[in-house]
Amino acid sequence: MRHLLSTKDLGRDEAIALLDIAEDMADVANREVKKLPTLRGKTVVNLFFEDSTRTRVSFEVAAKRLSADVINFSAKGSSLSKGESLKDTAQTLAAMGADGVVIRHHASGAPRVLAESGWIGAAIVNAGDGTHEHPTQALLDAFTIRRRLHGAGARGRGLDGVTVTIVGDILHSRVARSNIWLLTTLGATVSLVAPATLLPVSIAGWPVTAGYDLDAAIDNGPDVVMMLRIQAERMSAAFFPNAREYGRQWGLDDERVGRLPAASIVMHPGPMNRGLEISANAADSAQSTVLEQVANGVSIRMAVLYNLLSGAVVA
């Protein structure tokens, strides 16, 4: 792997290898000294054209646990907010000798443009691009599901036979897209639930089923329910009438959580709108993996940076 741009082009063996490295990285977090010397002398730049404290901090912790030098290059208060182009930024980072660039960008495809431009030779990690993909989020979600289901015996396994229902704003969600490709590659069966306004057009070719009825989906007893964040601006753009109606129809409230099988897990990529797409009880229940997802995010990002930057060949 030269870059991590999407999960669409990630093979099953490649994905499982990454999840297995993440298991090793998770073990590091349980040590007294939570640090490996692997990337000593390497420079990782967090290039964030869009605010995301959670993702940036997660990558920063991951890189530091691998002993890399980390530079945060964020939009606010830097030249990025003054209209500096992607090209100029990339050439600047190249001149400074960045080995890896973790990029979050509001435009779909920006990481790919960076990777193929010739402006910079560093390894590129997509940390979320527009409404396209967020591959490390999908990897950490797959890792979380696999750990919950298989515990210590997770290594080497895919997600064969696992049923996952993704609920909410699929149209604008890079998390949904990356999860759809990765989870199905790993053998899971994925279904989508959303109002028709928030489903992308022409998805007949996607390896998923799509429906509008959350209650029917709950009654199917999925192994995993993944709730997506609803953004307030969607209401003004007439995707749905208001928050109350959305919550009634597509919110994971206490009653719906109660109808899920006890072994089912509830996921959310965060940050959550408690009371809108997910109730407080659902978010804090034993079935919820929200905090595990955050912890696992560091392990996954360590695995990705290790894979891309250590020179070790994996799978």
Binding site: K8, S108, G109, D129, G130, T131, H132, E133, R174, R177, P200, V201, S202, I203, A204, G205, W206
Partner: peptide, 18 residues
């Protein structure tokens, strides 16, 4: 709008031009 609205725009996450 960024590109033709259809299966490909949905996959690429680019706003469709129907």
């Amino acid at each position: 709008a960024q590109m033709n609205e259809g299966a490909l725009s949905s996959e690429l996450g680019l706003t469709g031009w129907p």
